[in-house]
Design a protein around this nucleic acid. Structure first.
Lengths: 190, 190
DNA sequence: TGTACATCAGTGAACGCGCGTTCACTGATGTAC
DNA sequence: TGTACATCAGTGAACGCGCGTTCACTGATGTAC
């Protein structure tokens, strides 16, 4: 048995939840510590500071998201339209069951300094672009700017989730299917 | 002639530019004052504080944007598809010629406390929803959730601009036309 | 088994600095007469 | 026209507080013998 009942996970969950709801800047170390039931110093056993913690958690969650979606998006046993549909279902499910973790990467990305954002490698955008590129190469999508279509796709898929987070849009069990249908029409991938 | 050469506009322009590039939280009063060529106290002649200034500027810019787009989006002399195309052109032009002002409303919205966001009335989303609703009522768009389609539309239109701001996507003179075509396909409005 | 020591997650109080804010003041411009 | 005064945009220095961070310490758990 590992030595004590470490509070690391509790701290990280509290931080993510607060970052996702109040934003990076408005969340203080004191907030996080209180939510996690520890004192403020405890945080520094695991991270060198607030900024580093936020950035590491952000990368962890974004990598996890990209991995999850890539798995179905590039499963070559399925046709492209089915892959996209499953990817969208995966995204909406992930949002449904991990609202805070998802909202964290969805809403706080603009809170980091630009140079940090630019240094990331496993971008979701690169993933989307690769998908569109492959479908285009296979002749399933009319020739186009893969990166522009990737942008349109990501924007359309994510915006409903942002709005839902602000209680401005209802999301039902059918929503992901309607989003999929719309995206397929947009891409000309039917 | 109004009394002195007031620095108010300079301060506001500097603030918007800094907010748009560094974000609300990372921009200090000292930054704004330095960029505007005034001392820090000058700001308080026009605003009661940093928060109030940011919020007022945000509302001003968002209202201006909504007004601009509404003008063409609800011009009943044109058919719906033309209206949407012109609205998208208007948006992309506004971004092109007022990059900082646009990026300010595009990127800093998640930096305000949620209750402030919820109190706004002239939402761009409401505008988009109204447009989709009208087109649907006229039988030009197959029946659907107007609010979901509005979300998809807004997401698709805005995402390329966000990415361009981070140097992750090129935008050319033809981009807005490609975006329009994609959106029309998505809505089934051809 | 019991005793002495090592480890280390978390404490709690203090620190100090960066930040937003305040305010008595300046000096240029406009107004009264 | 000239003189005395009012106005008020912007100054500059000080303030104070909220915040992230530090660090000597505690006490529970594991290890050596």
């Amino acid at each position: 048995m590992s030595r004590p009942v470490m509070k690391r996970e509790t701290i990280e969950e509290s931080a993510i939840r607060l970052f996702a709801t109040k934003g990076l800047a408005r969340t203080t170390i004191k907030d996080i510590a209180a939510a996690a039931g520890v004192t403020e110093g405890a945080l520094y056993r695991y991270y060198s500071g607030k900024e580093e913690m936020a950035w590491k958690l952000f990368n962890r969650e974004l990598d996890e998201f990209t991995r999850l979606v890539s798995e179905v998006l590039f499963d070559e046993r399925m046709p492209f339209n089915l892959r996209l549909g499953l990817a969208i279902k995966t995204i909406y499910d992930h949002y449904k069951y991990n609202g805070d973790r998802f909202a964290f990467i969805l809403l706080t990305q603009h809170g980091f300094p630009e140079d940090k954002l630019l240094s990331r490698d496993t971008e979701p955008m690169a993933m989307a672009e690769r998908f569109v590129g492959q479908a285009m190469g296979a002749g399933e999508i009319p020739p186009c700017d893969a990166d522009l279509y990737a942008a349109l796709l990501m924007g359309a898929i994510m915006q409903p989730l942002v709005l839902h987070r602000y209680n401005k849009l209802e999301i039902t069990a059918q929503t992901h299917a309607q989003v999929t249908a719309s995206c397929l029409r947009m891409l000309g991938l039917c």
